[in-house]
Simulated assay, not measured.
Amino acid sequence: MKMIIALSALVAIAVAAPQGQFAKDNDANAVVVKYDSDNIGIDGYNFAFETSNGISGQEAAQLNNPGTDNENLAVRGSYSYTGDDGQVYTVNYLADENGFQPIGKHLPVQP
């Protein structure tokens, strides 16, 4: 369960990181301007953040089927960032017993 949480956070951070010289210069001076977190214990958690360079994200998790063989943590969230082309990219995702499932207008869709 903790591995799913850690993995989803690392994936979100890695994918949200914009590339290019402008982004690198802007990111070097970025600061967190908003952070909210509520760790509600073993039943789940939620958090949200915004940075001065336009990156934002939010995530909420809920424990499903507690105490059973099918116990799992369902994580829903999203993150946004501005790409090198000036466009804002947003990814919504679900991570649960079926894996990490991202959705975004810029992402390919399975046939």
Rank of each mutant, 00 (worst) to 15 (best):
M1H: 10
M1P: 04
M3C: 00
I4D: 12
I5G: 08
I5N: 09
S8V: 11
S8Y: 00
A9T: 10
V11L: 15
V11E: 10
V11R: 14
A12Y: 00
A12N: 09
A12G: 12
A14H: 11
V15R: 03
P18I: 05
Q19M: 04
G20D: 00
Q21P: 14
Q21D: 13
Q21W: 05
Q21L: 11
F22K: 13
A23G: 04
K24Q: 15
K24F: 11
D25Q: 14
D27V: 02
D27C: 03
A28Q: 09
A28G: 07
N29V: 15
N29R: 14
A30H: 03
V31I: 13
V31A: 13
V32F: 01
K34C: 02
K34M: 07
Y35N: 12
Y35E: 10
D36T: 07
D36E: 09
D38C: 09
N39R: 07
N39H: 06
I40E: 10
G41K: 09
G41R: 08
G41Q: 06
D43I: 12
Y45P: 01
N46R: 15
N46I: 07
N46E: 15
F47G: 06
F47D: 07
A48N: 07
A48G: 10
F49I: 01
F49N: 00
E50N: 06
T51P: 05
T51S: 12
S52R: 03
N53H: 12
G54H: 02
I55F: 05
S56N: 11
S56T: 07
E59S: 09
A60D: 08
A61D: 04
Q62Y: 02
N64R: 10
N65E: 08
P66D: 04
G67A: 08
G67T: 06
T68W: 03
D69S: 11
N70I: 08
E71C: 09
N72K: 05
A74M: 14
A74S: 15
A74Q: 15
R76H: 14
G77D: 10
G77A: 10
G77L: 11
S78P: 01
S78D: 06
Y79M: 06
Y79D: 05
Y79K: 06
S80P: 05
S80F: 06
Y81N: 01
Y81Q: 01
Y81I: 01
Y81A: 02
G83L: 03
G83T: 01
G83M: 02
D84K: 13
D84A: 15
D84P: 12
G86P: 04
G86F: 05
G86D: 03
Q87S: 08
V88T: 15
V88N: 14
T90C: 07
V91I: 10
V91D: 02
N92H: 14
Y93W: 06
L94T: 15
L94M: 12
A95K: 03
N98I: 02
G99N: 03
Q101C: 11
Q101F: 11
I103R: 15
K105L: 12
K105Y: 07
H106C: 03
P108L: 05
V109G: 00
Q110A: 14
P111Q: 09
